[in-house]
Design a protein around this nucleic acid. Structure first.
Length: 576
RNA sequence: GCGCUCGUGGCUCAAUGGAUAGAGCACUUGGCUUCGGACCAAGGGAUUGCAGGUUCGAAUCCUGCCGAGCGCACCA
């Protein structure tokens, strides 16, 4: 409908001899202003030498002459808006579309055939998987799903820092610890916690004893070269345990990576790329190290290969871009990280473009804020970090507490409580604009009410419950349901909670498009809150289970919520 | 110091240069003989950090100031 009106407006204004700017046509915030509005008259008034309201009136008159299907009212108002009212039957048709498209409702083909890689989460083996990784995973997964809905071929990549200074510090810290090395039978949580402590120990010790620098560098070199059996043994065990532990978390979160990359693999290609860049004059030598002088491009200067000959994070990033491209020749390569890496990515993207001209315009960095504690930044070096797994487990525990009254098997409770907890966590991340920090207050439990994931899930569950009731009343939602709805069109009156819900369901695909084009899942999250609110209001105001049209609307609501939650990486449970 | 990002009710967040700045939490009040109360309805609560500017129109764009966060050469 938006497109139809847009076309009509453009036609009318060009017939009036006016140049069309990029016309805004949208849903008004307040339904009392009609179903759609445009501000085109105000934008053109000055150029046309007319008063905005008069011009709006003229455009409105000309639009009326076109007698556009389903448009029942065109009205020029106050400063110069033109408001449109759409016939109720148009929305009834939209509801039927939902019932046909089911779990595909909202998809489009805007990027059909494009290849896209999304790299996210990126935890480091031997280091703690903290709430920040949870955030990156949540956002990356949602973005990957949004892109899948453009018809693109998406690959999920995860890059893990299995070599480097943090590993050396962990191994050093291990030597300082009295605690016994955990055995194979310990839980993966214990195993990983052990290495987390070692890292904290190693890095705090290093902070107070800078004289161990040479020793740490020596260990680091051994890790790269795999030249020391003792180091290798610790390293291999730690890496294996970490990766197992990460898999457990991905399973709970609902992410499945297509491919893992490790820094130990990108080091070689990184060095090769940097040396090639050096010979081409893209990079230069300085103080024994190889650097990228970003100042020519208004960026910083960063070291790519240290004077000891080891690639830095930046150097390895240069190798990674090519490795990713070789694994899957993408049109768009997105990397999701916290915004503390913004400058770093500006730098490496620039360097990658210079080095690999075929990557020009393909690399994108998507940054998000950080999980912060009320008392300040979390840092794994100091040890005041919240483990991602602990955060999930604590949330699950409080969901279970809330579910204690529910009659449900223990097994089901376990599954559902996990789904609800993950919803609460993910939604709290995805409901707000990317890039802003989230303050995590341990004393304030995550919300299950109001603007929350569980609120949306609850609405879905409730809808399911009503549908079952409808079935008892002889309105089975089966193969014949849609055709029954088709025959029995019941047009509801406009202006009530039922028509408000209908209108929201109809605009879902446009919400998805916007979220896709801006890589902004929060539009979907915010929409789901509004949609759920509209449903709950409708539910409170009408008897649903005895009306086919209202059941049809409820079913359409269910599909829409289900699809929206899916885009956020959140499950829609049957019961909770 | 330089660069990037951000300041919206007590708190946490929305708002494509557009209409009366929206929600949730907290607070006050009302609603289960109806389909799940993790709900609904209503109320109070905002000089959108401050000062200018651009515009028919600014939370949004520009400039300055104040405040916060992040980054800035051999860590990742």
């Amino acid at each position: 409908m938006k497109d139809i009106l847009l076309e009509a407006i453009n036609k009318v204004i060009s017939e009036m001899g006016l140049e069309a700017p990029s016309v805004l046509i949208d849903y008004p915030g307040d339904m009392s202003h009609g179903d759609l509005y445009t501000n085109v008259a105000m934008m053109l008034a000055k150029k046309a030498g007319k008063n905005p309201l008069d011009l709006a009136g003229e455009i409105a008159e000309n639009l009326k002459k076109l007698s556009i299907k389903d448009v029942t009212k065109i009205e020029a108002v106050k400063p110069g808006f033109i408001n449109f009212s759409i016939d109720e039957s148009y929305f009834d048709t939209a509801i039927k579309t939902v019932l046909h498209e089911k779990i595909h409702y909202g998809k489009n083909q805007s990027m059909k055939g494009k290849k896209v890689v999304v790299e996210y989460t990126d935890p480091n083996p031997l280091k703690l998987f903290h709430v920040g990784h949870l955030m990156s995973n949540t956002i990356g997964e949602s973005v990957a799903r949004l892109i899948e809905w453009t018809g693109s071929d998406v690959r999920r990549f995860c890059f893990q820092g299995d070599v480097g200074r943090h590993i050396a510090l962990t191994i050093y810290g291990l030597r300082l610890m009295e605690t016994k090395f955990p055995d194979e039978n310990s839980s993966s949580k214990e195993k990983v916690a052990f290495f987390g402590q070692a890292y904290a120990k190693g890095s705090t010790y290093f902070k107070d004893h800078p004289e161990i620098e040479a020793e740490v560098q020596e260990i680091n070199k051994k890790v790269y070269e795999r030249s020391d059996n003792e180091v290798n043994e610790v390293y291999d065990k730690g890496r294996e345990w970490s990766l197992e532990y990460f898999e457990e978390i991905y399973k709970i979160l609902g992410t499945k990576f297509d491919r893992y990359f490790f820094e130990s693999q990108s080091a070689g290609p990184g060095i090769k790329a940097v040396e090639e860049g050096l010979s081409k004059g893209i990079f230069e030598k300085s103080d024994g190290a190889i650097i990228f002088n970003g100042e020519k491009y208004g960026l910083h200067t960063d070291v790519l290969i240290t004077k000891v000959g080891l690639p830095t994070y930046a150097g390895k990033e240069l190798g990674l871009a090519e490795m990713k491209y070789n694994a899957f020749p993408y049109d768009t390569g997105i990397t999701v990280t916290a915004n503390e890496q913004n400058d770093f990515f500006k730098l490496t993207i620039k360097a990658n473009n210079l080095l690999f001209p075929f990557l020009e315009g393909k690399l994108h960095h998507l940054s998000h804020g950080m999980m912060r504690l009320p008392e300040g930044k979390m840092g794994s070096r100091t040890g005041n970090v919240i483990a991602g797994r602990d955060f999930i487990d604590e949330t699950v525990a409080s969901v279970l507490e809330k579910m204690s009254e529910r009659k449900m098997s223990e097994e089901d409770k376990k599954v559902v409580s996990e789904e609800v907890a993950v919803a609460a966590i993910k939604f709290s991340v995805l409901k707000q604009t990317l890039g802003k920090d989230i303050i995590y207050d341990k004393n304030k439990a995550l919300s299950f009410e109001g603007d929350s994931g569980p609120y949306v899930q609850y609405s879905f569950v409730r809808a399911g419950s009503v549908l079952r009731k409808g079935e008892e009343n002889g309105f089975a939602v089966d193969e014949n349901f849609v055709s029954k709805v088709e025959r029995d069109i019941v047009i509801s009156e406009s202006g009530n909670s039922e028509s408000a819900l209908k209108r929201l369901i109809e605009r879902f695909p446009t919400v998805v498009e916007r979220a896709q084009s801006e890589y902004a899942p929060h539009y979907v999250a915010q929409y789901l809150l509004a949609l759920s609110g509209a449903f709950n209001s409708f539910y409170a105001n009408s008897q649903i289970a005895n009306s086919l049209s209202r059941l049809a609307l409820t079913k359409a609501f269910q599909f829409t919520v289900h699809n929206g939650l899916w885009l956020l990486g959140i499950k829609a449970p049957k019961e909770m």
